[in-house]
């Protein structure tokens, strides 16, 4: 039996049932991105009237925030759907069903996109209306930035899922915190030049660094840097490949250690 869209759809249906049955889950998708936007958006508005405006040209702060939310929410949306199976003790049922690991991952990717759409649509509308986010200025670049950041989020989500399979809920906190390693390194709010020399190689190994540099190039120079997009794409291919290999290895380690039967702490 090969890859089955029907099985991927079945799992997506399960997550849709869950979200539709629980208004706190639906609210959670929207409230944090909006809250974050309000905080940083008001800071930007204040800074625009009183200090160095070049930092905030073209709504760079809010644009950075929105792209950061795409990266972060892409991973969290993936990881939470996976964690729902662990929390509900349903993982054994799924692993014993004909669902293949890559179909499981595909369903988690689809749900990550669905969660992003629900969470970010009101946030983007607010950002455009009140905080100078210029979607038109980013243009087609926004679509490319979005896709590249989501794929990085998935790569991290895949590794986290593998670690939870292997180590149980003891690894759960990684789902909430691992992405913050990226925050200072991938230069969300400042250019790469700000980082000390010894840290730059780490930053340059992260696909999102090129996306945020590319965003600033669009906003300040009006140029979509294809070299940045190309570098981010190439790194993402490496990242998603490495994450898939890590997932398969962790799954096999979990089968060897018998941890799929227990699935606890």
């Amino acid at each position: 039996m090969s890859f089955s869209i029907r099985r991927v759809g079945a799992l997506c249906l399960r997550y849709c049932y869950l979200i539709a049955s629980s208004w706190p889950r639906l609210l959670e998708l929207v409230y944090w991105p909006v809250l974050n936007l309000l905080t940083w958006g008001f800071l930007q508005n204040y800074a625009m009237t009183s200090t160095n405006r070049t930092l905030f040209v073209g709504g760079a702060l809010v644009s950075g925030l929105l792209l950061w939310e795409i990266l972060f929410r892409g991973q969290i949306g993936f990881s939470i759907s996976f964690l729902e199976e662990v929390w509900s003790r349903n993982l054994g049922n799924l692993l014993m069903s004909p669902l293949r690991p890559f179909e499981f991952v595909a369903a988690l990717m689809v749900m990550s996109l669905a969660r992003l759409a629900v969470g970010l649509t009101p946030t983007v509308i607010l950002a455009v209306a009140y905080f100078g986010f210029d979607l038109a200025a980013l243009g087609v670049g926004f679509v490319a930035f979005f896709a590249l950041l989501v794929v990085t989020g998935w790569a991290v989500g895949i590794v986290v899922a593998g670690l939870i399979l292997r180590h149980g809920l003891g690894a759960e906190s990684l789902a909430w915190t691992i992405m913050f390693v990226f925050w200072p390194l991938c230069c969300v709010y400042y250019p790469l030049a700000v980082l000390p020399g010894w840290l730059k190689p780490f930053a340059l190994a992260l696909p999102p660094t090129y996306v945020f540099e590319g965003m600033r190039a669009v906003l300040s120079e009006g140029v979509l840097r294809l070299d940045y997009l190309g570098a981010a794409l190439a790194l993402n291919v490496l990242w998603i490949g490495a994450a898939s290999v890590a997932f398969v290895m962790l799954l096999n380690r979990a089968r060897d250690a018998g941890s799929l039967l227990s699935g606890g702490e």
Binding site: L11, Y17, S88, S97
Partner: peptide, 20 residues
């Protein structure tokens, strides 16, 4: 030692597994 998602109705759970 396994369970079915608590928030889904019995019919919804069975539908998901039937599709799987």
């Amino acid at each position: 030692y396994v369970d079915m998602p608590h928030r889904l109705t019995v019919r919804q759970n069975l539908r998901v597994f039937a599709l799987l």
